[in-house]
Design a protein around this nucleic acid. Structure first.
Length: 792
DNA sequence: TAATTCGCTAGACCGA
DNA sequence: TCGGTCTAGCGAA
């Protein structure tokens, strides 16, 4: 028997002769190898001894008529809701037997809907990138001797991209050929079947078939661990597959097996390869966007690269690619194709560390992680902790329970109403990780909820939580928070942007992402760990702490300008910075040890505006001038993608003038000039595009809003629009209502100056100008068509 | 069909 | 032509 050590990087399962194996992909001394580990699927049944006799007669006919019986049945002791229970473990031959057998059992069943490979990872307490040592005979693992903490590992990477012939705009995979395939690892190449002598990186082949074949050869020659693509799961890979099938070529994306594993997860689908980790960067970027790590409002490769990458990406008009091909304008096309692969490669490397850390931390494979949400990562972490503690993993809720939860939302955070105005000398402070710190401090967990009043925390929502023992959620969370603070200390000792620094920083970010998702998961209707009492206690404590802090600040003599969820804005006024720090200290002395109010910063000036409809101040909308001259802007139109650039840019200028110069005339001048420019009709249409996402299928809208109208016009012209598409439109001159005037950006020929002046520019700057001292009378034209001329 | 609620604003729609 | 109500999207935290 041989003994081998290696890093576990991926897994699958397969059933051979009615025996189920986990197929582990392990990197041993830098070489990927496959091993098989025999592992049986199972689930638990709760019933008494006499009832259990019926389990011995268990048998179900499968679709093929085969009789499915359990492989064996064992007694097991587990905890359900903290209570010790005797359960029966039904061990099956194959993962597909689990749902069949479960459905024939009249008793409570548990853990029957856990994906088999996940079951394996949980039971062996593995995590991707762990080092494992094992005994094996050939490819069959007999015994795993040890599992060590995940470690850093160098992985070989490869990116690719295809260009297709597209006379109709969108290529048709059965008709339109692939014309170029580019890829990038340490060097990059473009494969095609026309000759481009002036480009050394181009390799030319006889036809499409040979080109695709050369691509597969390149792939197997470089044998990468990771393959990056951009939207490759939905476009490039299926396209190559269709073309290859048509041309009679074997598809060879995987290292060992050519068939592609398809995985559908929510909005995204993934393609799993055997022996290589396929990372489609598109869903990964969406993930970062949801968390606010990526600010880009659009998720095209170009938009994302412009934010995260090192330069601007070379662009050609997508719709002209077929013309360039026909007209032999091949140099530019080849450059573009090359750049696509290189951009994808660089982008992948920028985010890979973070996703690897998320994978190591959550225990989900890197492939799974790339398609997961933070909620799934939290869930898997809690499942792992449950297995460790021998708790039964809570089941997913039934649909009826989900709708009940959805119809009964949990009261959220407190937001203080600001008074509109321009202020000088502001201090901002916030609670570090408010919700996680509340969960830890008050031991909030479904298992610690209690009726008793001894040694408990009373939540403002009326529920009580035992002070000990520590609940599973606080335990996991405390560990995460603790580890993260160690990482942050470590970062201070490392050189910024060094390899070590970036790796520790990615780990710290992974810990933060997951810690911050626990509360959301607790209140998420489909959560296994949903608990209304817990979730509403978290927010109730949050509201209490912020309100107490505001009250305390006022007693201290500060005017409190604003506060939202976990932050307070104080007017320092005649007090000193030291007074602010003293106040901070006194608050912190009264907080539980795991909570902390931090100074976020001092701001020389800031502005809060009124609401459009009423006199009151607007929440979630303010701008602060920082000491270094930068401006922090929240909520204004200018941070929203569904406003035109021209309105946003003007608003930004006005805000800057207000905060830095406080010059009424100058601000007015800027607005007036922009109005004139709009009237002249000379504004570039690009500055006027309004972007809105279709959250439903275009046919499913009740209202014909401008974006829906624009989308319908696009469909009419043959441009595909679906759920999730981002519609860019310009309001033109033709038509009555705004919807009728809305033209898709690519077809827009003119614009309606009145619309852009009255509905875009003025609304975005008026509220701010008001704070510059324009009186109510000055603004009385509000809502009228012209008015503005008389104003300036 | 995979984290939450709070809040602002627009434009359509509808009835007077 | 108005004002109220509703649908929808996006951002803050």
């Amino acid at each position: 028997m041989a003994k081998t050590k290696g890093i576990f990087i991926d897994l699958n399962y397969k059933v051979q002769n009615n025996v189920t194996y986990i197929e582990l992909i392990i990197k041993c001394d830098g070489i990927k190898e496959r091993f098989l580990y025999q592992f049986d699927p199972y689930f638990y049944v709760e019933c008494n001894k006499s009832e259990s006799k019926t389990l011995n007669q268990l048998g179900v006919k499968s679709k093929t008529g085969e009789l499915i019986k359990p492989k064996s049945i064992e007694d097991n002791i587990k905890f359900i809701n903290g209570e010790k229970k005797n359960l029966f473990k039904i061990i099956c031959y194959s993962p597909s037997d689990v749902p069949l057998l479960r459905s024939s059992i009249p008793f409570n069943c548990y853990e029957s809907n856990i994906l088999f490979v996940k079951r394996f990872i949980l039971d062996l307490n593995l995590a991707p990138f762990s080092e494992i040592e094992f005994e094996h005979e050939g490819e069959i693992i007999k015994k795993i001797i040890s599992v060590k903490e995940p470690k850093d590992l160098s992985l070989s990477k490869f990116s690719f991209d295809i260009e297709t012939y597209n006379p109709l705009g969108t290529p048709r995979e059965t008709i339109d050929p692939i014309i170029m395939i580019s890829f990038c690892n340490d060097s990059s190449e473009v494969l095609t079947y026309k000759s481009i002598k002036s480009r050394k990186f181009v390799k030319s082949f006889k036809d499409e078939k040979e080109t695709i074949s050369a691509f597969f050869n390149g792939l197997s020659k470089y044998d990468p661990d990771i393959i990056y693509g951009y939207n490759s799961a939905n476009f490039d890979i299926p396209y190559i597959q269709t073309r290859a099938d048509k041309l009679g070529l074997k598809v060879e994306f995987g290292k060992w097996e050519s068939n592609l594993g398809k995985l559908k997860k929510g909005l995204f689908s993934g393609i799993q390869l055997n022996g290589r980790i396929h990372l489609d960067l598109y869903p990964m970027m969406r993930f970062l966007g949801v968390l606010g790590i990526l600010k880009s409002k659009r998720y095209t490769l170009e938009a994302v690269y412009n934010e995260l990458g090192s330069g601007k990406k070379l662009m050609v008009e997508r719709k002209d690619i077929w013309k360039m091909w026909d007209n032999n304008e091949l140099e530019l096309l080849a450059d573009y194709s090359l750049k696509d692969a290189e951009t994808t490669y660089e982008l992948g490397n920028t985010v890979l560390d973070l996703f690897i850390e998320l994978s190591k931390l959550s225990g989900l494979t890197l492939f799974e992680t790339s398609l997961s949400t933070s909620g799934q990562m939290v869930e898997f972490l809690l499942m792992r902790e449950s297995v460790r503690k021998e708790y039964i993993i809570p089941s997913k809720p039934r649909d009826s329970l989900i709708s009940e939860r959805l119809s009964n939302p949990i009261e959220g955070a407190f937001v203080k109403l600001p008074s509109p105005g321009i202020y000088e000398n502001i201090a901002v402070m916030d609670f570090r990780g408010l919700y996680p710190s509340i969960i830890i401090s008050y031991n909030i967990d479904p298992y610690t909820l209690t009726e008793s009043s001894k040694e408990v925390h009373h939540s403002p929502a009326g529920w009580k939580f035992k002070k000990s023992p520590q609940g599973i959620i606080p335990a996991v969370l405390k560990n995460l928070v603790h580890e993260r603070s160690k990482l942050k200390k470590e970062m201070k000792s490392l050189k910024k942007n060094s390899k070590e620094y970036n790796s520790v920083s990615a780990r710290s970010q992974a810990y933060k992402i997951i810690s911050n998702s626990f509360y959301g998961y607790l209140g998420y209707a489909r959560s296994r760990w949903y608990n209304r009492n817990c979730a509403e206690s978290v927010t109730a404590w949050g509201r209490k702490h912020i309100q107490d802090t505001i009250e305390k600040a006022e007693k201290y003599g500060f005017k409190v300008l604003y506060g939202d969820t976990d932050s307070v804005f104080l007017l320092v006024d005649k007090k000193s910075k030291k007074d602010v720090l003293d106040f901070l200290d006194s608050v912190n002395k009264s907080l539980p040890t795991d909570m902390e109010l931090e100074l976020e910063g001092f701001y020389p000036s800031g502005v809060f505006v009124g609401k459009k409809s009423e006199e009151k101040g607007a929440k979630k909308k303010y701008a602060l001038l920082a000491e270094d001259g930068s401006i922090k802007i929240r909520g204004f139109e200018l941070v929203r993608r569904d406003w035109s650039n021209i309105a946003k840019e003007t608003q930004r200028k006005v805000l800057e003038i207000i905060l830095k110069e406080k010059d009424k005339d100058k601000a007015g001048k800027v607005v007036r000039e922009t109005i004139e420019l709009l009237k002249s009709g000379k504004v570039d249409l690009k500055e006027l595009v309004i972007y809105t996402q279709m959250t439903k299928d275009p046919s499913k809208y009740d209202i014909m809003s401008p974006e829906v109208s624009a989308a319908k016009k696009m469909i009419k012209k043959g441009v595909p629009v679906q759920k999730g598409s981002l519609i860019g439109y310009v309001v033109g001159k033709k038509g009555k209502s705004i919807s009728e005037k809305a033209e898709p950006f690519e077809f827009a020929k003119d614009y309606d100056p009145d619309y852009y002046i009255n509905n875009q520019l003025l609304p975005s700057v008026m509220k701010i100008l008001k704070e510059l001292g324009f009186s109510e009378d000055d603004l009385k034209f509000k809502g009228k068509q012209k008015g503005l001329d008389s104003f300036f």
